[in-house]
Nucleic acid binder design. Structure first.
Lengths: 175, 175
DNA sequence: ATGGGTCGGTTTGAAATTCCAACTGTCATG
DNA sequence: CATGACAGTTGGAATTTCAAACCGACCCAT
């Protein structure tokens, strides 16, 4: 669980994970700490300055400062100066950060369904202009398979563990 | 941030969240603690017994016991006896738990792309028998909009904050 | 019946992390 | 010169986490 710094082609460090080798665990290692995703949410919303993020997430200032540093180190956010004199920074999402949108949408959809009475926020969605669906409507996210265009139903999925020494049930004995 | 217990129609308690009212924050309140999603991952994989989950997640036993209790309380997992004498339980996902699949897929996809060298696990996907795409292939999850059938591109989305007293930027002044 | 092994935890005490409130430093504005 | 905005940092207390050992119920083999 040492936070090593193997670099992929895309400048995000590859964390070690406890237990089973797993991309979701690796993802959580980078963005799963407390306050991290809420900070990212605010940046998604366009609130890029420290005080705004503190106010809108409710995070303690020192924790937020630490999280933003960690996220910067993780290559998920980027700190850009918006003023010299006094030197001030704002936080932007990198490509990796923007790529968290599906995670946010999935969490939001789950929370809408299971964790709140009425959705406190919705995303209004409009297809490409001229397309069939250019009327604005609430986004209702479903995860589909890009390869075949069908919905990912749990029934149609099987697990294929490729990490050496592991299978679905756990570490393979006698290795 | 008191963990109140308003019940929705579906038996999952609705947590209070710090900062902006937000379904994603509410979701994280229930399943965002350390080890929670990894435990859920193992249950998804069919590893339902305590020792297996400990082994495959690497979580400390006491933490895992606490997390599973919290997830049970949150209505995400269910404890079912699989043996009397000695009395033993295994953990199953409830409807709310199964509904976390899109979150897991999104995290996994993000991790595959940004946090590991080579995906340690893939989901093999097969469409409905007789459909166009019944050849097995790796699931490549994309989030689409159920309403219009188009991909949720960040360009086509705008935020609509419906929580009273809040807007995109934060709490509305003078309320 | 004794000793070992399994399973699902609980207990303990130390270590790490988090929280809160106050503080700092730099600058702009009036 | 005083006030306020902004972006943190600091200190100390409170909470959470961790690792490792332990426990109780049971099964099985000797």
């Amino acid at each position: 669980m040492t936070s090593n710094a193997k670099q992929g082609e895309n400048s995000v460090p590859h964390p070690d994970v406890p237990g089973r080798p797993c991309s979701a665990a690796a993802a959580l290692q980078l963005v799963g700490e407390r306050w991290a995703l809420l900070a990212i949410r605010e940046i998604f919303y366009g609130n890029r300055r420290f005080d705004r993020i503190v106010r809108n997430t409710g995070a303690p200032r020192d924790r937020l400062a630490a999280r933003l540093r960690a996220l910067e180190e993780a290559g998920v956010v980027e700190r850009r100066p918006y003023s010299e004199r006094p030197l001030r920074f704002e936080y932007h999402l990198t490509g990796a950060g923007l790529d968290l949108a599906p995670v946010m949408h999935a969490l939001l959809a789950w929370g809408d369904r299971w964790a709140v009475d009425a959705p406190p926020v919705a995303f209004r969605h409009r297809g490409a202009p001229g397309s069939d669906h250019d009327a604005e409507h609430d986004l209702d996210p479903v995860t589909m398979c890009r390869t075949c265009g069908e919905e990912a139903r749990s029934g149609g999925l099987t697990i294929d563990v490729r990490a050496p020494g592991w299978d679905r049930a756990g570490p393979i004995e006698g290795v």
